[in-house]
């Protein structure tokens, strides 16, 4: 009988813990995930910086049945935001503005260092590791706000990269 009580107690605490964990996960997902129809935006991040030019990266998954077109973004902390792509020219790498970026149905686009990124120019604030700021991402189908997490200055990916949401 005592064992049965103990088992019931353990099961109930496990259920409470699982419920709590679920809540935490949801809260975490809330800041790491944004959705526009069937387009999922994940893990938006930027390296810590003293302002000026800042690159923002993220993962975009088009789970729909039609191509979606990424057009650009804007943020209140930056004077200008451009969609840019990394390119080699004369032996040196640099970021070129991209007028648009279609993402095919079912395709995943990773915005990452030395690839595609949002380039924020004239950032007025110092961005410290752990800070967050809002970025409004513009698609042909509409606009969505996403929180960008500031990672360490030399970071190469989001601290939660690889997690499935």
């Amino acid at each position: 009988m005592r064992i049965a009580y103990l088992a019931a107690f353990l099961l109930s605490t496990t259920a409470v813990y699982a419920d709590d964990h679920k809540h935490e996960e949801h809260a975490e997902q809330g800041s790491h995930l944004a959705e526009l129809g069937e387009v999922h935006l994940l893990h938006a991040w930027a390296p810590a910086s003293e302002g000026g030019d800042v690159l923002v990266f993220m993962e975009i998954e088009n789970e729909g049945h039609e191509t979606v077109t990424l057009l650009g973004a804007h943020a209140h902390i930056a004077a200008k935001v451009e969609l840019v792509g990394f390119e080699l020219k004369d032996g040196h790498g640099h970021y070129e503005p991209l007028p648009k970026l279609p993402i095919a149905a079912g395709a995943h686009m990773t915005l990452a260092p030395n690839g595609v990124a949002f380039q924020l120019s004239g950032v007025s604030e110092h961005l410290h590791q752990g800070d967050e700021f809002a970025l409004h991402i513009e698609f042909a189908a509409g606009e969505i706000e996403m929180m960008v997490q500031v990672e360490a200055a030399g970071a190469t990916q989001h601290s939660h990269a690889g997690h499935n949401h």
């Binding site: 792509g85 390119e87 070129e96 991209l98 007028p99 648009k100 970026l101 279609p102 993402i103 095919a104 395709a107 995943h108 686009m109 990773t110 690839g115 595609v116």
Partner: peptide, 10 residues
């Protein structure tokens, strides 16, 4: 360039 990146993701 944008088309190259679109192709890469696909």
């Amino acid at each position: 360039l944008w088309a190259n990146y679109a192709l890469q993701s696909e």
